[in-house]
C-alpha cells in the first residue's frame, strides 16, 4: 500500500513518505530516539521549539503525569536558532526524511527574523509556527487566540521564509478554532497542524500548592484525543489547505481516525513517552490497520466520514 502523502500548500508542497510525523517537544531533535528505530522510516519529525535566542525555560517541576495524559510547562528551553542551524541540524538525517523546525517567538517581528534565519537551511523541509505563545508587545495575549494576530504572524513568516512550506500549529484554547484556521489560511499558511496542548492545572492538596512551578501547563496525551479529533474535523471542513492531526495519537488506529476526521498526516507526541518506538511502530502497523478496517487508500479514507452533519 502506498502511504506517501503530499501536503499540497498554497506556496509550497511538503512531500512525506508516509503520514506519520512526531510532535514538537516530545522527540527532542530526533537523534535522542535513534536507538529505538530508523528515523528515516518516519514521514518526518518536528524538532523541539526553536527561538531566536537561547531560553532556559521554566523552573521545575515542569512536567506531571495526569490521568491518561500529562501536563508540561517546559517553557521552550532551547539553545537558540544559531546553535540549531550550525550544531544540531547538520547531524540530522534530513536527506532521508522531512525535518521540520518548530518556531517560537514573542513578537511578529521576532517571528519574521527567526523565519528569515531558518529559510536558508537546506535541511529543513518545513517550518511549523507555534502561535500558542504570548505576544509581549500586546500585553501577553496569545497569537493563537486572536485571528488577526495569528494571521499577522503567518503572513510575516510567509514573507520572511519564501522558500519553505509553512505549517501553522493551532491552539485548542479558543472559542472557534475554524475561524483562526481560516485566517491563517488567508494569510498564506501551507498547512495547519492541530492541536497544541490544552491549558490545564494540577494541585498538590497536601502542600496546598500547584503541582507545576508555573502553576498552569499544557495537557497532552490520550486524554485530549477527543478534543483533537473534534478540532481536526472542524478545521478540515473550514479550510482547503491540508490539516495535520495531533493529540493523543498512540496507535495506527488512532492515526486512521484522524485521517477519517480530515487530517492528511498526523503527529505522535506523548505516545513517544509511552514507548520510545511508538512512532516507528505506528508506521509499521499502518498497512495492517488499513487492511483490517478496509481502507483502500488514505485519500479514500479522508473523504469518507459518514455523519448526519457532514
Amino acid at each position: 500500500m502506498n502511504l506517501a502523502v503530499v501536503l499540497r500548500g498554497q506556496t509550497h508542497d511538503l512531500a512525506l513518505k508516509n503520514p506519520v510525523l512526531t510532535a514538537s517537544g516530545t522527540f527532542g531533535y530526533g537523534l535522542e530516539y535513534a536507538p529505538y528505530g530508523e528515523l528515516k522510516s518516519l514521514g518526518g519529525f518536528v524538532v523541539k521549539g526553536i527561538s531566536l535566542t537561547p531560553r532556559d525555560g521554566n523552573p521545575c517541576p515542569r512536567v506531571l503525569e495526569t490521568a491518561s495524559g500529562m501536563l508540561n510547562s517546559i517553557g521552550l528551553q532551547n539553545d537558540g536558532a544559531e546553535d540549531f542551524c550550525t550544531r544540531k541540524l547538520p547531524l540530522l538525517p534530513w536527506r532521508e526524511t522531512a525535518v521540520i523546525a518548530n518556531m517560537y517567538a514573542c513578537s511578529v517581528e521576532e517571528f519574521a527574523r527567526l523565519a528569515g534565519r531558518l529559510d536558508g537551511e537546506e535541511g529543513l523541509a518545513a517550518l511549523e509556527v507555534n502561535v500558542s505563545c504570548p505576544n509581549v508587545e500586546q500585553g501577553g495575549a496569545l497569537f493563537g487566540q486572536d485571528a488577526r494576530l495569528a494571521a499577522a504572524v503567518t503572513s510575516a513568516v510567509r514573507k520572511a521564509a519564501p522558500s519553505k512550506h509553512i505549517m501553522v500549529k493551532l491552539s485548542p484554547n479558543v472559542a472557534d478554532i475554524a475561524l483562526i484556521a481560516k485566517s491563517v489560511e488567508e494569510a498564506g499558511a501551507d498547512s495547519i497542524s492541530c492541536i497544541n496542548t490544552l491549558l490545564g492545572m494540577a494541585l498538590d492538596l497536601r502542600a496546598r500548592r500547584p503541582a507545576l512551578a508555573n502553576v498552569v501547563g499544557g495537557l497532552s496525551g490520550p486524554a485530549i484525543k477527543p478534543v483533537a479529533l473534534r478540532c481536526v474535523w472542524q478545521v478540515a471542513r473550514a479550510v482547503r489547505i491540508p490539516v495535520v492531526g495531533v493529540g493523543g495519537i498512540v496507535t495506527a488506529v488512532d492515526a486512521l481516525e484522524f485521517i477519517l476526521a480530515g487530517a492528511s498526516a498526523v503527529q505522535v507526541g506523548t505516545g513517544n513517552f509511552m514507548r520510545p518506538d511508538c512512532a516507528f511502530r505506528l508506521v509499521e502497523r499502518l498497512p495492517e490497520a488499513c487492511a483490517e478496517y478496509g481502507v483502500a487508500s488514505l485519500d479514500e479514507l479522508r473523504a469518507s466520514l459518514c455523519c448526519p452533519t457532514c
Partner: peptide, 8 residues
C-alpha cells in the same frame, strides 16, 4: 517522562 533527553 522520556528518560532519553527529549522532553526536558
Amino acid at each position: 517522562a522520556c528518560g532519553v533527553g527529549a522532553c526536558l
